[in-house]
Simulated assay, not measured.
Amino acid sequence: MPASWLPAGCQEIALPRMLPRLLRPEDLHGFRFSEGDHCRLALLSSPRDADRRDDVGPASTPLTIFVEVHDPMEQVPLHAHHNAAELYFVLRGQVIFHVGDRTITACGGDFVVVPEDAIHDLQNPGPGRLYLLTVLSRDAGFSEMLERGIPAPLDDEDLEVLRSL
């Protein structure tokens, strides 16, 4: 790309390239962190995708992107991500976030940002399932921990919802 699009005084940086790829809902692998969890998470991209690159070197991004599926009345306990913001795009359903002393209610089409180190939880008040597209700005082992979890395949309802978006 020509450097003419850059603002004055800025220099283009060559980042390691990742091969383009296409993921369809059927390609996703759902996981739960533990036996008691009901939430299913399916990775879309993580720093480990560097294995799919056409050159060598460190991964080009520390981001992790995943789909979350929450059953009605399900609640994710209070937690925080050290040095990592969490960005949520509500694909379908309604969600209630508690971030510090704030309560945020969001529904399909809304975008919610949880700042770095912020203690937060989320709840699906129902009546249907909640679908989130989530970006974690710094993986810090999150994707590896998830992939060591319990396989929990996305079901027909999940696949239908994801195909319809």
Rank of each mutant, 00 (worst) to 15 (best):
H82T: 12
E12W: 11
Q11A: 02
H79F: 01
T134G: 02
G30P: 08
R40D: 07
G57I: 08
H70N: 12
D158Q: 03
A84V: 10
F33N: 10
P77Y: 01
L136G: 09
D51H: 09
L15N: 13
T103D: 06
L159N: 10
A3V: 12
Y88G: 11
H70S: 14
L162F: 01
P127R: 11
F89Y: 12
I150V: 12
E74L: 12
V56C: 14
E147K: 11
Q94V: 08
I119E: 03
Y131R: 02
V112N: 02
A118E: 01
P25L: 01
V90Q: 06
R129N: 14
L162C: 08
W5K: 08
H98G: 06
G57D: 09
D27G: 04
T134A: 08
D110M: 01
D117H: 05
H98V: 07
A85E: 10
T64G: 04
Q11D: 12
D156H: 14
S164R: 05
E160N: 14
L6R: 02
E86F: 03
S4A: 09
W5P: 09
L132C: 13
L78A: 09
D139C: 03
G149Q: 03
G57Q: 10
H120E: 01
P20I: 06
L44A: 11
V135P: 06
L165R: 05
P2R: 15
H38M: 06
Q75D: 10
G100F: 00
G100T: 12
D54P: 12
A84M: 11
G100R: 01
L133Y: 01
C10P: 06
H79Q: 07
Q94T: 12
L146H: 05
H120W: 00
S60K: 11
G57K: 05
L130Q: 03
E12F: 06
